[in-house]
């Protein structure tokens, strides 16, 4: 897997743009990992979704799918939306998809350093966590607004 070289659609593999799961994965990669999804990751993401959502059904699930589709189409901030959604209801489609993505990312040697710290970095850790804590607060506000607007009309 290579690092991101930009957001230009022309630089993204064609097969990844073509389907819904591919679009989701593309957005997750852009937003959370700054990488370009490779075919192997896409295949794994497809299979994992098939496994986790094999028996998902019902009105609530359909409504959640609509919200997710609207968010993807409107290019909403998925990190903010997921965070606000998760705090309100942990059992939602976007949190599950992001969780799948996290698992797949964590089990790739390319992203090892994103999850494992092998040296003493107390100052770095405090700075990063402090910044991320503040950022989370802002994302929460943004996410709530986004969630309310997306839910309207569903």
């Amino acid at each position: 897997m290579t690092e991101s070289i930009g957001d230009s659609p022309s630089l993204k593999p064609r097969h990844i743009q073509d389907d819904e799961l591919g679009q989701e994965l593309q957005r997750f990669c852009d937003q959370f990992a700054h990488c370009v999804p490779d075919p192997e990751l896409l295949a794994a993401y497809r299979c994992a979704n098939a496994k986790v959502f094999a028996h998902a059904a019902g009105q609530e699930h359909e409504e959640q799918k609509i919200i997710l589709r609207k968010a993807l189409a409107a290019k909403r901030d998925l990190e903010a939306l997921e965070y606000a959604w998760r705090l309100g209801c942990h059992d939602n489609i976007l949190t599950k998809k992001v969780h799948i993505f996290m698992y797949l990312l964590e089990t790739s040697p390319d992203h090892y350093n994103k999850f494992v710290n092998e040296s003493k970095q107390r100052t770095t850790a405090y700075v990063v966590l402090g910044f991320q804590g503040l950022r989370s607060a802002l994302k929460l506000c943004k996410g709530y607004i986004s969630l309310i607007s997306l839910r309207a009309g569903v």
Partner: peptide, 17 residues
């Protein structure tokens, strides 16, 4: 990680640190 009440990038940083 997903039990941390934080946004995803903060969750990833928490997993690490």
């Amino acid at each position: 990680g997903m039990n941390f009440p934080l946004a995803i990038k903060a969750v990833m940083a928490s997993c690490k640190y």
